[in-house]
């Protein structure tokens, strides 16, 4: 069997991971216009929570995932209340503030858990076969988690009053408030939600990644470029750009050095943004 079908499958798995890790950023960047430079650190919080619940407290992995989303979400809501809400509409200052938060979080976890890398055990072991190809069963869990998470946020943002309010505030904050919408509570909730999704991603991907305080940095760039290519506030766009980026990296990587494959994909991202600066799936703005 050739390498192409294997790499197409590997690309799908990588895309699911990328999508899962980017969703929280779509909410916070796309809807609140805050580039959360601590996004990776919220993933790290989720991963540590998952590690703590599964490896230390020895509870089932489902509890670890739920706990991670909860802890990261609550923590995000607190951070929003204490820090972020003072900086809305001031883009540069949110960058500085979230950068500071990312460093503080990394240091806190270094002091609390040391820099030693932690492993979260795979809750589902072994491989499954498609023809002569073998893939880890856990990859299916990641695909399912990513699909569920996207479905959830799409429903939440386009089918519920809460989502409608978030979109209304994004479009015209003052007017939304004139309608009696409590914008600041909605902000806290959506920032917390973005962080909860980051925490969820951290927990679900923890068993295939390595958990350590500085792990967030690698997630940040990947998520950021995915969200920007996808069109900043579009969930479907982010799903499409995750697939595009991961499939091209995997397929190219199958036929050349993975380092070169990454470089080519990065150049591709730059070209896309050169010709579609607001991303592939940006909505037309008035």
């Amino acid at each position: 069997m050739g390498i192409l079908p294997i790499q197409l499958m590997n690309g799908l798995f990588a895309a699911s991971t990328l999508l899962l890790c980017s969703l929280g950023m779509v909410i916070i960047f796309g809807n609140m216009n805050v580039v959360n430079l601590a996004h990776g650190e919220f993933i790290m919080v989720g991963a540590y929570t998952a590690w703590f619940i599964s490896a230390v407290a020895r509870l089932p992995f489902v509890a670890a995932v739920a706990g991670a989303a909860l802890v990261a979400g609550l923590f995000g809501a607190v951070v929003e209340r204490v820090v972020i809400k003072r900086f809305y509409q001031r883009f540069e200052e949110t960058l500085l503030a979230t950068y500071a938060i990312s460093i503080i979080m990394t240091q806190i976890f270094r002091l609390g858990f040391s820099s030693m890398k932690k492993i979260v055990e795979l809750p589902v072991r072994g491989g499954f076969e498609i023809g002569s190809m073998t893939f880890p069963k856990y990859n299916l869990v990641i695909v399912a988690a990513a699909a569920t998470a996207v479905g959830f946020v799409c429903l939440l943002f386009y089918k519920t009053p809460f989502g409608r309010r978030v979109r209304a505030i994004r479009q015209n904050r003052n007017m939304a408030m004139c309608l009696g919408i409590n914008a600041s509570a909605t902000d806290t909730l959506s920032f917390g939600l973005g962080c909860a999704l980051a925490g969820l991603a951290g927990a679900v991907t923890a068993p295939v990644k390595i958990v350590f305080p500085a792990m967030g940095a690698s997630y940040l760039m990947d998520s950021f470029s995915t969200v920007v290519v996808g069109g900043v506030d579009s969930f479907i766009g982010t799903a499409a750009s995750s697939a595009l980026i991961s499939e091209s990296t995997s397929v190219l990587g199958g036929f050349m050095s993975e380092v070169y494959a990454q470089i080519i994909v990065l150049v591709g991202i730059i070209l896309i943004l050169r010709f579609r600066p607001s991303g592939l799936f940006a909505k037309e703005r008035r």
């Binding site: 809460f162 309010r165 009696g180 909605t186």
Partner: peptide
């Protein structure tokens, strides 16, 4: 729904 609480109509 403007005046309803945020949490109350989350979902």
């Amino acid at each position: 729904s403007g005046s309803r609480g945020v949490l109350r109509n989350l979902l």
